[in-house]
């Protein structure tokens, strides 16, 4: 029996082009044995949700440093819920002020990873929190 690999969509919404973090994370997750799809730059919440559905992912990692997280994250989450992807974890990585984190979590963000996070912590978080599937 082969265990299903964890599938993660690494997404870069908004107008910002700083993709160093997204690419490092994508590669680290791949090296940890996960299947990773990277959306490329400037994806709208609609495009991200559609890709998550199509790729049937367990988690979406959203990379943002432009300050647009409060606008973009709730929209991505509500679109995923509309598609019935209730178990799909939404993680945020980037520059997010401390005060915004509780609100993001209330809105359904599973975790926010700030600069300085080890990629191993992110791998561990996914392994611990992705719901096992048939």
């Amino acid at each position: 029996m082969s265990e299903r690999k964890i599938r993660v969509l690494v997404a870069k919404p908004g107008l910002d082009g700083h993709d160093r973090g997204a690419k490092v994370i994508a590669r680290a997750l791949r090296d940890a044995g996960m299947e990773v799809i990277y959306t490329g730059l400037r994806q709208t919440p609609e495009m991200i949700a559609a890709a998550a559905v199509q790729e049937d992912v367990d988690a979406v990692g959203v990379s943002i440093l432009s300050g647009a997280h409060n606008t973009l994250c709730p929209r991505i989450i509500s679109l995923l819920r509309d598609e019935g992807m209730d178990d799909c974890l939404v993680l945020v990585g980037g520059i997010v002020p401390q005060d915004d984190i509780p609100r993001l979590k209330e809105q359904g963000v599973a975790e926010v990873f700030l600069p300085g996070t080890s990629t191993e912590d992110i791998v561990r978080f996914l392994r611990d929190n992705v719901k096992p599937r048939e």
């Binding site: 107008l15 910002d16 432009s66 300050g67 647009a68 606008t71």
Partner: peptide
């Protein structure tokens, strides 16, 4: 930086931020 006006739908959430 991307050549959009502040009132473009693509600018939402990003106006005056960076």
């Amino acid at each position: 930086l991307m050549g959009y006006d502040s009132d473009s739908p693509l600018s939402e959430g990003e106006v005056g931020k960076c």
